[in-house]
Design a protein around this nucleic acid. Structure first.
Lengths: 246, 246
DNA sequence: GGGGAGAGATGCCGC
DNA sequence: GCGGCATTTCTCCCC
């Protein structure tokens, strides 16, 4: 029975055929590009995708410890006791060198997946809700526009109140912070300036706001309205049910 | 020769022994937690780490299409034609169900890696440089403090100029945007207020700034100074050399 | 644990 | 391509 081709030949073959490559190995890593990094030797999981994505995962943590994005050119060279995996992203001017000293496992395969994820519960769902039902914010509000583009950014929801003051609403699906207040401030000030009016109100709609951000908000003369993103409670109830199902 | 244990037994064993688990399979996925998502059937790479991290990768892209963070409890159940992988993160109140219909490949192993990455070229390197050499910004500047905490955030570098005006410097290692200008504005206004003085200057130090952000900055009476993060040119030179080496 | 801010942020959509 | 901005942002640091 003929022996299998050497590791680097297998890898080259998989790269050429644009297979997904799963490699568990002891390696050290150097990166040079938008920043510089070095990582001493350890056991890691390397993933090379058909689109030229390279991910390096340690045994813990959510995020790859090193990575190269789609469009990376990869090649491997065999040396007496190590393999050198060179990764180069021409457009981003990024380079990575992985020195492999021990190969635990290599698997490669053609994969097919054309499906896209369907995601709900993001901020747009919240601004959709407030555009459809502005009285969740305050009785008498009339919604005028959504995602209105200004020179200084996009206004989530624009309304008039019952006294015909313009009302600018900025939504956050999570707790609001300084940045959210500043976004609101930027839109309000810009609209006042460009329309030459002063009766413009600013409302920050979010489930909560940090104490400091609230102080800041109120100093600027704006309001916070506590609003949960849509289906927040239903979602929680579903979770509770699922606990029972387990 | 005895046949190997069924897939779900192998997986249970690996979970119990806290091995890293690499699984290439056809699956569909539902997630419920901070948001809700569903993903129809396709070929994906699943990774389960010893710390309870679960990653789902499609054949393209940098980022996992679905994930559960460290601390996730995972168990698997076998049904007539499918396996159900249940993932539950108690603290985050998150749930994921993965329906596996075809197993291409399963590999599990103990892994060891205690190494930490060494990273250079981040923003702190830049504020360190400006604290040490404030005259890179403007002749006659005297640095007073770094990372100074205020009620409204942290000031990167605080200086006095040759006319004894207080100068607040905000650093960005990349192109500055609206948010950077607003951060600077917040610090300057807060310092003016808390110290009861008006001669406070604001300087944004970054390699570049977007046109709109620059307009905004100047309307507020602040300045932009073009500064590259340290070793930027050296880094580029290194890259150039590496191109030659290839 | 919360707050504040950077990140080799990433990804999406707009122009 | 850049710009503006949300992200199941993530991660780190400091209180």
């Amino acid at each position: 029975m003929p022996s299998p081709p050497p590791f680097h030949k297998q890898l080259e073959h998989a790269l050429a055929k644009k297979e997904i490559i799963i490699l568990l190995a002891t390696c050290s890593i150097d990166y040079n590009g938008r920043a510089q990094s070095s990582l001493a030797s350890g056991d890691r999981l390397l993933i090379i995708k058909p689109d030229g994505t390279l991910l390096v995962h340690q045994p813990t943590g959510n995020v790859p410890i090193n990575y190269m994005k789609e469009g990376t050119h990869i090649h491997i060279t065999a040396q007496p006791n190590v393999w050198l995996l060179h990764a180069h992203h021409p457009k981003n001017q990024e380079f990575m060198t992985i020195e492999l000293t021990r190969i635990y496992h290599l698997y490669t395969q053609q994969v097919h997946d054309g499906e896209k994820i369907i995601l709900h519960g993001h901020e747009k769902d919240m601004s959709d809700m407030l555009y459809a039902q502005p009285d969740l914010i305050e009785p008498g509000l009339r919604a005028v526009s959504r995602e209105e583009k200004t020179e200084f950014g996009f206004i989530d929801v624009l309304c008039y109140d019952q006294h015909n003051n313009l009302v600018i609403i900025e939504c956050k699906r999570n707790q609001a912070d300084f940045k959210a207040v500043e976004q609101l401030q930027r839109y309000v000030e810009k609209v006042k300036q460009s329309k030459g009016i002063t009766n413009v109100r600013g409302i920050l709609a979010s489930p909560s706001i940090s104490a400091n951000a609230k102080t800041f908000l109120e100093q600027l003369g704006y309001q916070h309205v506590a609003i949960n993103p849509p289906h927040f409670k239903e979602q929680h109830r579903k979770n509770q049910k699922k606990i029972g199902e387990y």
